[in-house]
């Protein structure tokens, strides 16, 4: 990757990024910028490469070509300023540990090798739990949580990092309406504090209400920018093909079985 810092005024700058599994490219030449202080959504159909894009930005998947900067520096250098909320289903919730312990894991990056978390880390984790209204569950075994509670614990684990840029992979997938409301309120609050929040999202109905910046992805970038400019019929049709119908200028998913799956939970996607 590159050594010289550039685009320091952008929270996220992705240039010419191509990623492939085996020989098949899953992301083609992605150019993608996000200014600081926005709540940005990434949408696209199943298999569009949304999760892969986030994983590549965070160095979990090695790109074939291209590079990424966060506030002008490589992810490796900015690691401490980035919080990551993976898909809830990506871990085993029967792991023998407590809610508080999972949230404390968010601080392992700050602690570094060999150092154990202490009282200070515990207090910070408790504060983060309070932000998602889960303080009463601190001592609970994680297998006893509902889906929505699991998601809130995962978000607390990222909050405890006190990052500047947050990446969330499908945080609303499979959670109840109350939790979704609580999560989006929290994300808005983070944005209002000047943080940059980037969310992989699957529910087209809520895009305009939730986000102020949007990127539509389907292997390549279809469109990006302020949500009101990007969230248009032609753009959506280009990304989702014929699965979209337009009603009153608002894009709505058609009632087809295949489309429904796109519109609701698509956890299985990488």
């Amino acid at each position: 990757m590159i050594d010289t810092p550039h685009e320091p005024h952008l929270a996220l700058h992705v240039e010419d990024l191509t990623v492939s599994y085996q020989s098949k490219p899953v992301l083609w030449d992605i150019d993608f910028d996000i200014p600081p202080g926005v709540l940005a959504g990434i949408i696209g159909p199943n298999g569009a490469g949304k999760s892969t894009l986030i994983k590549t930005i965070l160095g979990l998947v090695k790109p074939v070509a291209g590079h990424v900067t966060i506030f002008g520096d490589t992810y490796r250098k900015q690691r401490r300023h980035v919080g990551y909320v993976p898909q809830r289903t990506s871990v085993d919730w029967d792991f023998p540990t407590t809610v508080l312990d999972v949230v404390t894991m968010g601080l392992y990056g700050h602690l570094g090798w060999f150092r154990r978390p202490g009282r200070r880390e515990r207090d910070e984790a408790l504060d983060a739990l309070a932000m998602v209204n889960m303080q009463d569950f601190a001592r609970r075994q994680i297998s006893q949580l509902s889906g929505g509670q699991q998601q809130r614990v995962f978000i607390a684990r990222a909050l405890v990092q006190k990052a500047d840029v947050y990446f969330l992979d499908e945080p609303m997938a499979g959670v109840d309406a109350t939790t979704e409301r609580a999560i989006i309120d929290l994300l808005h609050r983070l944005r209002d504090e000047g943080k940059t929040v980037i969310v992989v999202h699957h529910d087209l109905q809520t895009v305009r209400r939730y986000f102020d910046w949007l990127m539509i992805l389907n292997v390549r970038v279809i469109s990006q920018g302020p949500v009101e400019q990007v969230y248009t019929g032609p753009n959506l049709r280009q990304a989702y093909g014929g699965q979209i119908a337009l009603l009153d200028g608002q894009a709505v998913m058609q009632d087809q079985p295949t489309t429904k799956r796109d519109a609701t939970a698509n956890h299985g996607e990488r």
Binding site: G59, M105, Y108
Partner: peptide, 10 residues
């Protein structure tokens, strides 16, 4: 527990 986060945290 979470190899992805472990990798992301360095």
């Amino acid at each position: 527990f979470d190899p992805d986060l472990a990798k992301a945290l360095g």
